[in-house]
Structure formats: structure tokens, C-alpha cells
């Protein structure tokens, strides 16, 4: 039984169709990947799911209820939390305070009469930002700030975690640790939907992957199927010759950690065609700070 269902969602910005009749589902206890070239509409999907963006049409169902018209905070209270591609940490609070706020919000009035059992320091330790506990959130490295956003989500004990490019800014060993953390979280029964440009990570941890291109879901399946899917290769590489090889995209990941030009707007219509391998790893989110 799917925990989250995105059903025929369309989002239009003026003339641009950012999400085009996209449908996919997220199962509990699993890591679902949402990948696609830059500008494919992944973040927009997240915004629709969390209520930050009204869809032009289509529905979102969560735990068997239609939540399309619910407000952002109501959806969250039903058990979903997200991180942001562009950091949304509370910059002028410390890392620990960030999590405290999340906990306070989650507990609401109950927090006034009853101490929380959640151990904030243990939580920080778990996601790996304990070293920064007393630093201002806008003064820590991006990778750590992304982990902080995850810690903040976990303070509310959500059923569904939506992670938007969580690993950008992490080095290789940190990424590995992060992958393990994700799997641990799913073993607790949570569902994870993750947008990610690091193909090693995606292929390594995801149970299922949906591929978006120009707002359309062009493929869904297990990592191995996605890897060899010609439509996916075409979307990423601009061609699907056999000589590109099934392994080609995976070989050249981690390019997302390489610095990328201005980090400004890149025309999605251009990107897919001209950028060869890095489009998979993608420029991702080069830092917001």
C-alpha cells in the first residue's frame, strides 16, 4: 500500500510546464529516488507534495487521504517533513536551537506541560552534526546544514521524509555514512523520497527510482532497470547509443561535487543536449552560500 501517491499532477508557471501529468507512488519502509536532469521538475514536485505550490491540476494522496487542498502545516502534522535544495536552516539560531524549535513546533502546547523524551544531542549525533551543535546554522558548511535540516525533520518523527539533494556538500565518506543512515531510517518504517544527483548514492540505496524529464515521468523501476533504460539515457546524455554503455552514467558520478560555473540559471533545454556526463551527476545545487 503506497504511503504517498502523486496522481496526474500538472504545474504550470506562465508558459512553462514544470510538471507534466506526473504520477508516482512512495512505499513505506523504502527509499524512493526521484531523479532527472536540471529543471526536470523534481523540486516542484516536492513543493506540490508539501503544499508550498498549488498544482494546476492533479491530486496528492497521503496515507489514503486526499491532501491536495490541505495547508502546508496540516500536511506536515500528518507526518511528512522535507529538506530543501536551497538551505532553509534557521540561520541566526544555533544548530541545537534549530532542532529545539522543530521539536517545540512538533509538540505544540504539549511541550509546555511535559518534557520531551527526545534527546536532541543524540539526534545531532545520529545525523552527524554534533560537532556543530553550538554554532550558528549559517556559519556551518553546507553539507552539515543539509544534515541539520534532516535532524530537524526527524525531531517531528515523520512517516515520510522528502530529501532534496541531501548529499551535495558531503564528501565521499560522509556520503557513505549518510546512505547508511537513510537505510536505518527506512528500517524504522519510514518512507523516504529523495531527489539526488549523486548516482552512486541513488543507485546504491534506492529501492525504486522514478525519472522525470521535462516534468514527465519517463521511467520507473529498480535501479538496475533504470540504469539500462534507453529513455533515461537519452534524457541524461542526449543519446542512447549502446556505446554509451549501461554503466556510463554511474562511472562518472561525484561530478556534483566539482565546482560548477556560475551556478546561475541553465536552460534545461540546453543542458540535456550539450552537457555530456556531468548532467547525470549534474551540477546539483552548488551552494547557496
Amino acid at each position: 500500500m503506497a504511503l504517498l501517491e502523486v496522481d496526474d499532477v500538472v504545474v504550470q508557471f506562465g508558459g512553462v510546464t514544470a510538471v507534466d501529468h506526473a504520477s508516482f507512488a512512495v512505499e513505506p519502509g523504502r527509499i524512493t529516488g526521484l531523479i532527472g536532469p536540471n529543471g526536470a521538475g523534481k523540486t516542484t514536485c516536492f513543493n506540490v507534495i508539501t503544499g508550498l505550490q498549488k498544482p494546476t491540476r492533479g491530486h496528492v494522496r497521503f496515507a489514503d487521504k486526499d491532501i491536495t487542498s490541505l495547508s502546508v502545516h496540516r500536511r506536515s502534522r500528518r507526518g511528512m517533513a522535507r529538506t530543501f535544495q536551497r538551505l532553509e536552516a534557521f540561520g541566526s539560531l544555533t544548530v541545537r536551537e534549530n532542532v529545539k524549535v522543530a521539536l517545540d513546533i512538533h509538540r505544540g502546547l504539549k511541550g509546555l506541560v511535559q518534557r520531551s523524551a527526545t534527546d536532541i544531542d543524540a539526534l545531532l549525533e545520529r545525523v552527524g552534526v554534533a560537532a556543530y551543535a553550538d554554532e550558528r546554522a549559517d556559519a556551518i558548511p553546507t553539507g552539515a546544514a543539509r544534515l541539520l535540516e534532516l535532524a530537524r525533520c526527524l525531531a517531528g518523527d515523520p512517516q515520510l521524509l522528502l530529501l532534496d539533494e541531501p548529499s551535495s556538500g558531503l564528501d565521499e565518506s560522509e556520503t557513505d555514512a549518510f546512505g547508511e543512515l537513510l537505510q536505518e531510517l527506512t528500517r524504522e518504517g519510514r518512507a523516504i523520497l529523495m531527489v539526488e544527483h549523486d548516482m552512486d548514492l541513488v543507485m546504491g540505496v534506492c529501492d525504486e527510482i522514478h525519472v522525470l524529464d521535462f516534468g514527465k515521468v519517463i521511467a520507473s523501476g529498480r535501479p538496475a532497470e533504470i540504469r539500462t533504460n534507453p529513455a533515461v539515457q537519452k534524457a541524461y546524455l542526449g543519446y542512447s547509443d549502446d556505446d554509451a554503455g549501461a554503466e556510463a552514467p554511474a562511472e562518472q558520478t561525484r561530478t556534483d561535487l566539482a565546482p560548477v560555473g556560475a551556478g546561475g540559471y541553465a536552460d534545461p533545454y540546453d543542458e540535456g543536449a550539450t552537457t555530456v556526463i556531468p548532467a547525470v551527476g549534474g551540477p546539483g545545487d552548488q551552494e547557496t552560500r
Partner: peptide
């Protein structure tokens, strides 16, 4: 205090507060 922290959080990132479940 607690309230002050939430205030600052709302100022710093309304989107994060909303997705954490705060009715602002």
C-alpha cells in the same frame, strides 16, 4: 525562551516552519 526561538525561526525561514508543522 521557546517563543523567541520560534519567532526567529519564522523570520529566518517561513517555509521551513510551515513544513515542520507550524501554523504561522
Amino acid at each position: 525562551g521557546r517563543l523567541g526561538r520560534v519567532l526567529i525561526a519564522m523570520r529566518d525561514s517561513p517555509a521551513a516552519c510551515g513544513t515542520l508543522g507550524l501554523d504561522m
